[in-house]
Nucleic acid binder design. Structure first.
Lengths: 355, 355
DNA sequence: GACGGTAGTCGAATCGATTCGATAAGGTGA
DNA sequence: TCACCTTATCGAATCGATTCGACTACCGTC
């Protein structure tokens, strides 16, 4: 009998001998209801084990579901092995949770780099955040815009009617490159994040470079080239320690004469991998090779070294996203936001070895 | 005019000169519609930029929202620094995503160890997974049961009408303890996960041990005591590398005579911290002290050591949870599941130092 | 004592779809 | 030619709440 038919607002109203509309007012917390009436309704609700208005029915009228989607461009286990993604979402929920809004994970899988249309189509969404991915030609994005779901993109894609929240990636790496140049480095190599999530690994050629790909990767590469001109860029297949190590081994396992004296990784996680590669090749950091990262991520397992990196305010970025979402849901159109970054010099960069 | 009023099924039906019910049939993919009619409806939808039936309205009738909540007993940044949580949810989404069901994050914050009632009350949920927490006396749990939302609990809480998915924690650590005993260890200490998320740290006294707390902690401690009898247990405030290091330093920074010859951490992340502590104290592992963990987590940054640990099938556990959720939503009541674990002996345990 | 005002409650329309029984059109067999 | 069956479409009720205009007392005021 219990889950046979759960009580509805109408049931409660009937038991309290009031109209459904009055009962509704009670649960909405209106002050236009007489205290005696309110108590009667609440008592009836308690008697019947009524847990409050059905969220779905409420959403139908109010045009709000309290659900915000987070598009993750990979399977969770991969995306969340990067503390940056996690911190970002942490900032988002910090703002959204108190408003009674939850974050719905929309991960991709091994093949697709985002949710399927079938997934998106069936879920009630007030807004969507592109959290860790974002190519301009995403079919899911088109679907969302057609449905009128507002979108916030973190670091891309840059599209009309999508609120952008990002950082000056290019200026950040440019600053880092300046630091390396000042130290005397001339032979620098870059370890890039995936240009597309298609499993490609290796030196980035002109053709691949020309294709559609992440704004982030492009900008962070350009920042280095602003100082050093064209540099070899080794693409990884994922933002993961192992991938960084693999790339590092490729770049560093060569005679000292042709070896880069500094490696700029496009994330701290990749940089951690490069450090491991250097270690396993018997190269000292920074005496034999300098290593730098990007993000300023908290990697509690990384010490004793302190990574030279470009620090971005990741959690704050998440909060900004959260506020942008709040605005959009309220019908306001927030401005794009570009947060600031700064160079943090650690113990992993130093003068190049004498040649 | 565009977001003025988005087209509805009725609009589309009118334009295609059919009844709304027929148009509905088209979008439901029914084969009882004449192909010509179907094409007309689809054409009308395309003309109007109609993106398919509104998920909220659909949910109202079908009593399904396509949203499953994941209760996280901490803020995301903390909970997801543990690869085990992430892998678990990865397994869950792996099963749920293809069914068009999404996972809604319901994190706690610094103070509360789960979502507020306000958060829960406003969100449409088909089911809820207690992913990384679970005390029996959780008010959120009561609310959910009253609302008739089915609940799956991972490793607890154990309550009526909640499907339980877990592992034989006690047998796992017992096996590990056996291994240590076989090596000759007699003085063993345990580094426990938080008994409650209240920031407490330090040696677990009788009083605290008697209070309500995590099943997991209790079982994993008992497993060790099955072999060694009462052992000192040092509680951490969070499942994090830094916490493990802190605990490790407390336990190991004593003269060799009183120092435990083996430390059993209740998670691999904590064990990693203990390893760091040993390292910074100049203790060799396993020559001076053996260290073991629990989970069999992938910590790509951990090598060159291979941690001795109790391996649980985390991703598979997530899949099992996903299937349990599927069953519950379909109205079936799945059985509780206890998955298997096995000992994996690595390079961090060995005979105790000669005394 | 008639009138304006207010506090509290109620009715009915609405949100956007789904679903099932009814119905009309068209086809078959005796 | 008529009864019967199938196929495609339609109508209307339903899911569970919200919301706003309308209505009823009841009070105070001139």
């Amino acid at each position: 009998m219990s889950d046979r038919s759960r009580p509805t607002l109408a049931t409660v109203a009937a038991r309290a001998a009031v109209a459904p509309s009055t009962a509704s007012l009670v649960f909405a917390g209106s002050d236009r209801v007489a205290p005696a009436t309110r108590d009667r309704v609440l008592a009836a609700a308690a008697d019947l084990g009524y847990a409050g208005p059905d969220p779905v029915a409420r959403s139908l009228r109010s045009r709000r579901s309290g659900v915000v989607g987070a598009v993750i461009g990979d399977r969770l286990a991969h995306a969340f092995s990067d503390p940056v993604s996690v911190q970002l979402l942490d900032g988002v929920t910090e703002v959204l949770s108190p408003l009674g809004v939850g974050l719905l994970l929309l991960p991709g899988d091994a093949d697709r780099h985002g949710p399927t249309l079938a997934q998106l189509a069936h879920v009630p969404l007030d807004a969507v955040v592109y959290a860790t991915c974002g190519l301009e030609d995403d079919p899911a994005l088109v679907h969302l815009q057609r449905r009128g779901v507002p979108v916030v993109a973190v670091d891309g894609p840059c599209v009309d009617d999508v609120v952008f929240v990002g950082i000056p990636d290019r200026r950040g790496t440019a600053e880092l490159a300046g630091h390396l140049a000042d130290l005397g480095h001339r032979r620098v190599a870059v370890v890039t994040l995936p240009l597309r999530l298609d499993g490609t690994r290796g030196l980035v050629g002109a053709a691949r470079r020309a294709g559609t790909h992440h704004r982030t990767v492009r900008e962070r590469t350009l920042g280095v080239e602003d100082t050093f001109g064209p540099v070899p860029a080794w693409e990884t297949a994922a933002n993961a320690v192992e991938e960084g190590e693999r790339a590092g081994r490729q770049l560093l396992d060569v005679p000292a004469g042709g070896r880069p004296t500094a490696v700029v990784a496009q994330s701290d996680v990749l940089a951690a991998g490069v450090l491991r590669a250097a270690d396993s090749l018997g190269l000292r950091v920074p005496e034999d090779v300098s290593v730098a990262g990007f993000d300023g991520a908290e990697l509690p397992w990384l010490p004793p070294v302190r990574l030279t990196t470009v620090v971005q305010p990741t959690t704050e970025k998440g909060r900004v996203v959260g506020r942008a979402v709040t605005d959009l849901v309220a019908g306001r159109r927030p401005d794009d936001v570009v947060l600031d970054v700064h160079l943090s010099v650690g113990t992993t960069t130093g003068p190049p070895p004498p040649s």
